[in-house]
Amino acid sequence: MTRRYVKVYPRFERFYHWGQALLIFVLFFTGLGVAGLHALVPYGLAVTVHTIAAVLLLVLWVFATFWHFTTGDWLHYLPTTKGLFNVARYYAYGVFRGEEHPFNKRFWAKNNPLQALTYVFLKAVLFPAIWITGILYLTYSFWDHVAAANLWLGWVAVIHALAAFTLAAFVIVHVYLLTLGHTFRDHVRPMITGYDIVDLSPEEEAYLAHDQMKRLGPVAGGHH
């Protein structure tokens, strides 16, 4: 095993991550306005921005989904119970005792098991809940003739809002967890530069050195 800097977040993934972050922030902010929880932007503008941002996010998600499957990156999100308990135990207990984070990134596992589980929940449950209800909401005029359409729309809005608040809660925890283990900057940097410290097997190192020289960074020193 060698610990080396490896480009684990290619350019598209970083663009996807930050684009999604920005759009989710804009959507949450304008969504709160549409729900009547603030009036910091005019209502019509909030609806306009919310709609346009939603369409942009949908387009981004289409590309991201395509990217995940064509690059095989989806494998990083396969949930596993292996090591899951250790990570959970670390957050609930170990971190208070100054323990090391029990998870080291590997070339084919850049997410820790709890991350993978969370992201699967995000991508397979929360995101679909929000985009399916969002599209239903946006296209209400195409189905408003069905019986009790407005009642259904009310429930569509309920699910949409609950998913949105859950997502906001995720973002809070997500940002907070950046302060755990490494420093906040150490956590954010890989999502900007693309390079993170990864445990490489000799075979993986040889493969990268031979075929993916650009992805291979310097040997990482120090702790962890």
């Binding site: 549409v34 729900a35 009547g36 929880l37 209502y43 809005a157 809002a161 609950l162 906001a168």
Partner: peptide
């Protein structure tokens, strides 16, 4: 939308 900022959904979300 917007007529009931303190609906049960929004309260639950907050």
């Amino acid at each position: 939308p917007g007529r009931e900022p303190l609906s049960w959904v929004n309260l639950a979300g907050l």
